[in-house]
Design a protein around this nucleic acid. Structure first.
Length: 669
RNA sequence: GCCGCGGUAGCUCAGUGGUAGAGCGCGUCAUUGGUAAUGACGAGGUCGGGAGUUCGAUUCUCCCUCGUGGCACCA
């Protein structure tokens, strides 16, 4: 056994099954594993000492609980990915001397490493790096942990030209161990500043990894800093797991709402209106169904729907504070008739110098306009709460790089509403909203909702008593609705605490859609008031709230969640009546008309094509039902129903079929 | 906005320093067929825009533009 010379005392090692073993102090986890069985020693990759993941080789000084971590453990992926990042960095520096390393953390499903290099990495470079990584892994160099003196470490990295690493060490708190992990010897040697732990050797990384993409990233995530080159990779226990993950990526790509949107003829984008949607008839059917559904829900929950102007004088935006805080995201329009020209060429300046004297802005939010509606007339405490809803079309001047299909637009429609209430009504209103939101998400097929309560930030408006009341009001509401939630101190907006709702989709991605935000600021700025029981003026509390967030974006999320196979009530074309021969044309036409009359979105396909062709085409278009009719059905007054993806047909008489379909196609509310 | 990659027919993509090709789709004709590809023929492209190099540019270079993957942003 190693380290016997350092033996001072015996320590007790407790294994997960409760068994206790005695070893000399300084024994490593690997020693323990070897002692238990040589076979075990071969498959362990790390240790958990008193619950903390550590290197196998680390000497254990005192009594400890020890868990030996094998490749099938959850923690194994962390280790594999992190080691893989080290191997990648070594490969990069071997192939591209002069490249500086910066940071390389694990992320979901993989890792990245940021490098500072003048030239970007080409796809051939990436292949070469991967090849080099395999060489390093096959060599099976041991990861060796060393603790360095701080100044020595800084000097070492500075001397090597690793300015970023030196900077990282300089920023580490005084007194923290500067740990370095070395892998390989001489020419094939490499080391990196690292918190660890690592697996025993590079060979343990295995072959379940792949480099995925190269991207730019700012040093320390700050756009004022230098742009580094980031290489993303994914790593798994073995090739099989890797393959499964890559397959999953492909599947996710197939669901991309932009791709499905084009295939299903739902909408398009074009350069003349970047970031804004051209809805096609099929897509707008979905949009209208969604809007109608939310409208019914809001109406039922006691909201009043309004519509407010698109273009509003910037004076209002100044008053609301948006001009100061949000201007760079606003589209500003001069309130001036563009200049004509006498000769009809329109060559002259479009606007006069005075154009800037009066500016209008396309609204980026609806709230100031809603306060204007509230402010009309005198409100009594008896009128509260007042809930004003609007399918508000907003324009935001988003950075070009941020635009992404329906998910991030410059013009979008919020299912927005503002509740004006008293401080005492906060909890009831929040409860009401939470319930409404849960019902809506559940109707739309999202049952996994994560809730976060964001509390007061450093800089804020409103006194602490108000914040106390507001935060407590929201907390109480969440407890009352029985929703599980997390609290995020300091994450609230400057104008009030908020609740954010995240839904999880069919492939595990999360989307932040719903929100409930208290606002102490805007009623003050825009002088909203009501007359209280005491006959005096009071400020109402304002709640901003949305369930879908953006109608467009939510439809994008729905398309991806359902892979385009939306619930029947949202599907643009619910059924196609398709004929086998033209002998059934008249019967099919009558059937389709009957369906339409019953409120079903039904198309007719009496083209001169074979039934195979029609079935294939409509299946591709994801039409949920195909009603096939031929001479037989025409004679018997029936229809052969083919469900999307199904192989069998169900023959029903026409009236039963229609009644059943109408029932299935009912909106959930 | 920043870094990288890309833009060739309606769509997906191949290709070349001598003005272009496939599959699907589209049109016409034939086919009257029973549940995911019937056959034949045909139309369709200033190869994203501009400038440069060249006898000649879709191809090479530069600029612009749009898209895209990240980063930053998302009061």
């Amino acid at each position: 056994m190693k380290n016997v010379d350092r033996q001072i005392k015996d320590i007790t090692i407790t294994l997960p099954d409760g068994a206790q073993r005695t070893y000399p102090s300084g024994t490593s986890a690997l020693d323990v594993a070897t002692d238990i069985s040589p076979g075990l020693a071969k498959v362990v990759i790390a240790a958990k000492i008193d619950g903390e993941l550590s290197d196998l080789s680390l000497p254990i000084i005192n009594d400890a609980a020890l868990e030996l971590v094998k490749k099938d453990a959850d923690e194994a992926l962390e280790l594999i990915r992190h080691d893989c990042a080290h191997v990648m960095a070594q490969a990069v520096q071997k192939l591209f001397p002069g490249t500086q390393v910066t940071i390389g953390p694990n992320i979901d499903n993989g890792f990245f490493y940021d490098f500072a290099r003048d030239e970007p990495f080409s796809s051939e470079d990436i292949e070469a790096i991967e090849k080099q990584m395999r060489t390093i892994i096959q060599r099976g160099d041991a990861f060796v942990r060393e603790v360095w003196d701080r100044d020595k470490a800084i000097a070492y990295f500075k001397d090597k030209g690793e300015a970023y690493k030196a900077e990282i060490i300089e920023d580490l708190p005084e007194g923290e161990d500067i740990k370095v992990y070395r892998q390989g010897q001489g020419d094939d040697g490499w080391l990196d500043l690292c918190r660890g732990p690592h697996m025993p050797t590079t060979r343990h990384v295995g072959d379940g990894f792949k480099l995925l993409k190269v991207a730019g990233a700012y040093w320390r995530g700050d756009s004022n800093n230098a742009m580094l080159t980031r290489i993303y990779g994914t790593a798994w226990r073995d090739k099989k797991e890797l393959k499964a993950y890559l397959h999953q990526l492909e599947e996710a790509e197939k669901r991309d709402h932009r791709k499905l949107g084009a295939e299903m003829d739902l909408f398009h984008f074009q350069p003349e209106a970047q970031g804004s949607v051209f809805w096609h008839p099929q897509g707008f059917t979905i949009y209208n169904q969604m809007e109608g559904y939310i409208r019914r829900r809001l109406n039922d929950a006691g909201y009043d729907e309004i519509k407010t102007p698109q273009l509003i004088d910037n004076k209002l935006w100044e008053k609301s504070g948006h001009w100061g805080k949000y201007r760079e995201n606003m589209f500003v329009v001069p309130d001036e008739v563009p200049q004509g020209s006498d000769d009809g060429t329109h060559d002259g300046p479009i606007l006069s110098d005075k154009a800037f004297e009066k500016l209008m802005a396309l609204k980026p939010m609806n709230c100031p306009a809603h306060v204007q509606v509230f402010n009309q007339g005198i409100k009594s405490y008896r009128d509260l709460p007042i809930r004003l809803a609007e399918f508000g079309c907003c324009h935001r001047n988003e950075a070009h790089g941020a635009l992404h299909g329906l998910m991030r637009l410059r013009q979008f429609t919020q299912d927005d509403a503002h509740i004006f209430c008293t401080e005492d009504q906060i909890t009831d209103e929040a409860v009401g909203f939470c319930e409404l939101l849960q019902n809506v998400y559940s109707d739309l097929g999202f049952d996994d909702v994560a809730v976060a309560l964001s509390l007061r930030p450093e800089t804020r408006v409103g006194d602490d008593a108000l914040w106390d009341k507001a935060e407590e009001g929201l907390r109480k509401a969440l407890v009352k609705t029985g929703l599980e939630f997390r609290e995020d101190p300091g994450e609230g907006a400057f104008y009030g605490p908020k609740i954010d709702y995240q839904i999880r989709d069919a492939i595990g991605r999360t989307w932040q859609c719903g929100t409930l935000q208290l606002d102490f600021n805007l009623p003050e700025r825009l002088d909203a008031s009501y007359i209280g029981e005491d006959g005096n003026k009071h400020r109402p509390v304002m709640l901003h709230r949305a369930i879908l967030g953006s109608l467009e974006r939510f439809i994008g999320v729905m398309i991806e969640n359902y892979s385009g196979k939306l619930p029947l009530w949202l599907t643009p074309t619910q059924v196609v009546v398709a004929t086998i021969t033209d002998k059934a044309d008249a019967y099919a036409t009558a059937l389709q008309e009957k369906l339409v009359a019953a409120g079903v979105r039904a198309d007719l396909d009496i083209r001169n094509e074979k039934i195979n062709y029609k079935v294939r085409e409509h299946s591709h278009a994801k039409v949920p039902y195909i009603y096939v009719v031929g001479a037989r059905e025409a004679e018997e007054g029936t229809v052969a129903i083919r469900e999307l993806g199904g192989k069998d047909q169900l023959v029903k008489n026409v009236d039963d079929a229609i009644a059943g379909l109408v029932d299935d196609a009912k909106a959930p509310f």
